[in-house]
Amino acid sequence: MSNGSFPPESGRRGGTLAIVLAALIPACCVAFWLLSSSPGGSKDDDADGGSGSTAPSTPSATASPSSGKPLQGKVVVIDPGHNPHNRDHPSQIARLVDIGTNKKECDTTGTATNSGYPEASFTLDVARRVRSVLEARGATVRFTQDGDRPYGPCVDERAEIGNEAHADAVVSVHADGAAAGQRGVHVILPESVRGGDADTSAITTPSRHLGERLLDRFVQATGSEPAQYIGDGSGLDVRGDLGGLNLSTVPKVFIECGNMRDAQDAAQLTDPAWRERAGRGIAQGITDFLNE
């Protein structure tokens, strides 16, 4: 084959191949035209993972932009109780502010476990976990503070932040500082009060609904029991002396996630895995309320 010529047998096969190709090309063209003109026969349909069916594709409900976003369009304000820097500003947080029915301190330092884990650190950690879940579900989440303020905000400003956001729900995250041996979670609901700038008449019912959903989901997520040392043992407590509730014009509750002064509760509150469950429980309670 040094001269580049084919042996006789190869020449015969080459000629036969040319004849076969000449016969097949028109048939292939016809087949290609039929396939491309049939419904669902384009390559783009198969590129999306189709099974090769020739049925025309139709948009499904799950393909909408809000798919998997049950809280799209909802605004939630999370109020992490206290502030890690409050202890450095005693005079500022001690000043009195108007809560409608009377006057109270701007804020406090909060409590801590016997080992020194501050309530303010706990509330921020849990609040951030709640935010992650809610944002993944499409909600717009705002904080009253994110450890980025020198102190506070004061309780009246905390309420105003929720009001100005026109929040669909506000949850203030706390942990209690009761006596050792007193355990469990409880949710504080606004009492119907009216005085000065305080008027909770429009929010008491929806706030109760929010509180009930919150308590139920928190107990499911964490295994905690409703606190027996406060209220009637239901885990729900109604109060009219908290500025954050009195001055709210949108549904709002406080959740006391456990007692930092009890060794068993403190062991949970200081456990990151438990705080993750707590955050998810709070987020699910809010989700249930907003989807009612």
Rank of each mutant, 00 (worst) to 15 (best):
K252Q: 08
D216A: 14
Y117S: 03
P8D: 13
D199P: 04
R95P: 00
A227W: 00
S2T: 15
H209G: 12
G184K: 02
S132T: 15
I188C: 02
Y117I: 05
W274D: 03
T16H: 12
A273W: 01
H85Y: 14
T144E: 04
N102M: 04
F32C: 13
A267K: 13
R142M: 12
A202N: 13
P70K: 13
P251K: 06
R239W: 06
G138W: 00
I161C: 04
D146R: 11
C154G: 07
R277A: 12
S207N: 05
Q182P: 00
L269R: 06
V185M: 04
V155K: 12
L269I: 15
V171L: 07
V193W: 02
D168G: 06
A175W: 01
S67L: 02
P65Y: 08
R137D: 11
V126D: 01
V155D: 04
V133F: 00
K104L: 04
G281Q: 05
A278T: 10
L215G: 03
G244I: 07
K252E: 01
T111V: 08
L124A: 04
V238H: 00
N83T: 08
P206W: 07
G68W: 06
Q182N: 15
R131V: 07
G81S: 05
S53C: 04
S66V: 13
V250C: 05
P190W: 02
T249F: 00
Q268C: 09
A278G: 10
G181W: 06
V170E: 03
G281V: 05
F6Y: 12
R13M: 11
V193Q: 03
L215S: 06
A22R: 10
R280G: 08
R194H: 14
G152V: 04
N163Q: 11
W33L: 14
G177A: 11
P272G: 09
G116P: 04
A198I: 07
P56C: 07
A169H: 06
Y229F: 15
N3I: 11
